[in-house]
Design a protein around this nucleic acid. Structure first.
Lengths: 346, 346
DNA sequence: ACCCTTTATGAACGCGCGTTTATCCTCTAT
DNA sequence: ATAGAGGATAAACGCGCGTTCATAAAGGGT
């Protein structure tokens, strides 16, 4: 029932020129005299003509769309952070005249889902893709790279061999953990513990390894009793404290949580046990969640510039799509210490 | 530099049949004998062949993509709620084999931005669209409807005359406010105030009107001193309480906030003034924000089933795209009272 | 006045696919 | 044996556009 919008043939007829000329006007060819150009443009304006994108693609142009693939292992997809990532990509792509097709899958082990992802590429729905939650060495990513598609991956480590069409953006978890430990150490803390994220996820492991390295660097001992399990969820922070108290071990004077949600959970549990933050225990989060400034106490945390990172990644991917000779690129996230009210000097 | 993927001609050659037969296999024509069909399918599998979507569209098929347009007046786009909406649409569309192109604009008054939206339709990048933050009576929506495109709009009011390709999904703010007032009234409250959202936004107005109607229904007086201004942001809840206390008027015994963020802000301010919730003042929020259950005190609120609403809206839009004879539809959001710890009996 | 170079523009082709039309072949019923 | 029906499949067309190629007109120099 669609009103058949005018096509270039119709525009050509109305302007009294050939279709070739219309096409030349649209694609800014130089050899169209101003008078003819104006006449054609006028008709185009009058009829709100826009070239059919499918026909353009079939004739060899780019679709100017990138895929944004969210691999949400269960629950990631319902928070403000994910939203910020999505918005960053979309707004940045939009500045380059690119559109974003967002796709969600749960697991990179689900071959059915992966086939769905590959199909989006092979159907030529997109020029390239950005993956959040996949590792750059996964087989299907390799396949896409090999097939010549441009992909950007938010990963924790760089791939062995770089390619010009695989842009990897890494989290600088090491640097963040060092900031956190150095800050606490500077406040006089020596009894520093941590609540980990999922250790089967790279971001969980690199944060923990960063913690260990940072402690070593500051000449501090790691007490295994103060290394608590968690899974990046608020509840796991709560549970971690419960189990710590339950085991009856003396708590550390400071805790670094794998992210702010975990920190919230931990503080909730501490309060229930009558422990005040920061008077009795200092807590540092990670990510600088939107709620952290409003939390009580306002949470000291390591801010990760997610939005900025995604913006840069998007720009890189689009550049690589447009200029296929682009060199291999890698991007690292910036992070910084945001001092609020959840830590105190000893 | 793309590896030229096989096209249907190549598949036909390898299978020893004509391209027509390949196409018939792909599109499940009945007049292909099983042996031929199997042979072709085998070649398709071997080569991971997927039809080029642009060619399919040019040949008359649907692109199977819907546009998701977020009109974010400044700040809406960075919260968990927006993310939930996006995810709901994407996941639901995915179940029908549809993809989602997400687009963000700031303002429906920006003609440049609106032209960008229209272009997406007229370029045939999408089969239909869902608008969040636009009113169904805005001129550009009218244009799209008139042009035959299927659109779904999350609005606060129904359009005058229904059309089969304009699906409107409305918030049931009235019902929510009635639940809130009735609940407080049942707890013995008579001094009930409210912190409004932006009154230049329909959702702000309908909530306030719902509040007035509900108060009337319960036979309660509305005290103008207890009708506070706000703008749906956390800070405005804080400011509202500050100004209430600053004016030196006696506070009500219960407050209904336009949304949970505003309630958080209000509670933060109340705490600073030494007023406890719910002991000194009961507070009810709206929306059931992700943090509301974890807030201290856990926030009693009116849950709005956003995710479910968007899911139903998406389904409706896709149905209307696929079956152009579909009748006009409208959808209302469900809401329910979630009782937690921020209200007490008098 | 003539040849050569620009400049302007139309005609024609190809992109990959769905679909309609035409053709060939095989079987059944007379 | 033969006409007719029906099944299988190839050939051909069109979708809307970018682009190349050919052609015609216009200028520029001698």
């Amino acid at each position: 029932m669609k009103t058949t919008k005018a096509n270039s043939t119709e525009i050509a007829r109305l302007a009294g020129v050939s279709r070739s000329t219309v096409s030349r006007v649209i694609n800014n060819y130089s050899n169209v005299p101003p008078r003819t150009r104006e006449k054609v443009l006028e008709i185009i304006r009058q009829h709100n003509y826009v070239p059919n994108v499918s026909a353009q693609i079939l004739a060899g142009k780019r679709i100017r769309t990138i895929g944004l693939f969210l691999i949400s292992q269960g629950s990631v997809s319902s928070d403000a952070l994910t939203n910020m990532l999505i918005v960053s990509v979309i707004e940045n792509a939009s500045e380059y005249g690119y559109y974003v097709l967002t796709h969600i899958i749960r697991d990179t082990q689900d071959t059915e889902a992966i086939k769905g992802v590959m199909d989006i590429f092979y159907q030529h729905r997109i020029d390239g893709g950005i993956f959040i939650g996949a590792a750059s060495h996964e087989p299907f990513i390799e396949d896409l790279v090999k097939a010549g598609f441009t992909v950007g991956i938010v990963d924790q480590e760089l791939p062995e061999r770089p390619e010009s069409n695989r842009i990897v953006s890494t989290f600088n978890n090491d640097a963040g953990m060092k900031m956190a430990v150095a800050y606490l150490s500077g406040l006089g803390h020596t009894a520093i513990g941590t609540i980990n994220g999922n250790m089967n996820r790279l971001s969980g492991r690199t944060k923990y390894e960063g913690f260990l390295a940072a402690m070593r660097m500051c000449g501090l001992q790691v007490n295994p009793d103060w290394v608590l399990e968690g899974d990046f969820q608020e509840n796991s922070g709560y549970e971690a404290i419960q189990s710590l108290v339950g085991r009856g071990v003396a708590p550390p004077t400071a805790l670094i949580a794998a992210n702010d949600s975990v920190a919230f959970g931990a503080i909730r549990a501490l309060k229930e046990h009558g422990l005040r933050v920061p008077e009795d225990l200092s807590v540092i989060g990670f990510d600088d969640h939107a709620m952290s400034a409003k939390h009580h106490p306002a949470l000291t945390t390591i801010r990760v510039e997610f939005a900025d990172m995604l913006r840069r990644l998007t720009t890189c991917v689009i550049s690589a799509i447009e200029d296929e000779t682009a060199v291999a690129r890698e991007i690292a996230s910036d992070c910084s210490l945001i001092v609020r009210d959840s830590c105190r000097r000893i």
